[in-house]
Design a protein around this nucleic acid. Sequence first.
DNA 1: TTTTATTGGTAACCTAAGTTACACAAACTT
DNA 2: AAGTTTGTGTAACTTAGGTTACCAATAAAA
Lengths: 210, 210
Amino acid sequence: MIEQLRSSYGGVFENELINEILQVGTYKEVPEGFKLMEIGAYVKGMPLLVSGAIKVLRDDKNGNELLLYYLEQGDTCSMTMTCCMGQTKSEIRAIAETDTKLIMVPVQKMELWTSKYKSWRNFVFESYHNRVNELLHTIDSIAFDNMDERLLSYLQKKAEINSSYTINSTHQEIAYDLHSSRVVISRLLKKLENLGKVELHRNYIKIMKL
Amino acid sequence: MIEQLRSSYGGVFENELINEILQVGTYKEVPEGFKLMEIGAYVKGMPLLVSGAIKVLRDDKNGNELLLYYLEQGDTCSMTMTCCMGQTKSEIRAIAETDTKLIMVPVQKMELWTSKYKSWRNFVFESYHNRVNELLHTIDSIAFDNMDERLLSYLQKKAEINSSYTINSTHQEIAYDLHSSRVVISRLLKKLENLGKVELHRNYIKIMKL
DNA sequence: TTTTATTGGTAACCTAAGTTACACAAACTT
DNA sequence: AAGTTTGTGTAACTTAGGTTACCAATAAAA
């Protein structure tokens, strides 16, 4: 756990804080698909991502999802923090996108760290700021872009997150993330294939041009 | 300024902090329509709202707007803070929705206050948290609701902000806020009128039922 | 008063995207 | 091997909402 923490957060946190995290934090490895947070659940701790990626989703009233953004190495779920302080429930669902390594920090310590460590304060503020900016870009894409543009940037982001030009998703899964329907996604993917931008296969998609 | 600050923030900030704010803050009254922040601009200070309301907007690539949320009494633009720390540009535009009274706090002091005052830390964290939640609800409405539902909740929110059942907007102005077109808004408003939910007039709309 | 600009109503049309339905192939069960 | 499930392609249709165009009413300017 020491190496993990140092390599991902050594440049961010001072040594004393690193030591405190080592004492109270618990190291976790979760497999792809693991549900880390459910809507309406109370929050128990704050995750510090060491490796892998977590996708953060929102539900509509019918239980259909919409992908908001991904958390990656060095990120945290900043909302967690004020959730704990205010004892409010989670507004989002979080699922491991890939196999993921993270350190869970219990809530109790965090208020103390906030007054004690400047690096912790900056980390939390910056995290909030990043999340707000990601939400703004999510809004841009939903409000201003057509489905084909959204689909393309979804595929690109997914390729980036998985560091691979091969995306192992079915059309149905993509439709869930984009809050669309399978037929629409198949249609647009076929259009992208005709444009030479992707290559379609059963259960996976190859991205040709970025 | 003392009374303004005490009545809006007396319960939130400790006395010592209130005094500090009085020393470095500047009191401002801005009229309806006043532009407080432009996209791409650098941020000079953090606003503490005393009364009135500010609407926060986002632009698409063609310069068309979309209303994100309103700031009201007791709110602040939390993004301002990390904008200043990181020297990044504003991602949003802010316009006074009504005549508004506010206190501008220069950025320099804020980092100090963050370590010195617990109430300030909590205020900033809570502000971020509220903003994230508002953005989530904005996303809900854009991604999950039809235009008629969005229009109705827009009118309701606007009535609430202006504390009046009479909304002084043209159809075109509403269309801008909802990132739609005038014809569509007129069409849907007429439908709402036929349902007995609103009464249409030139330059204003009366809300009948909430 | 006559002209001009602003605002709202409505029709006709177009397009993106959601829906239903069905065919077919690959990949599993048994 | 036969049946079943899962994933994909495609056609036909529907609908929300964007676009263009034009008219009428009101308000402001000349």
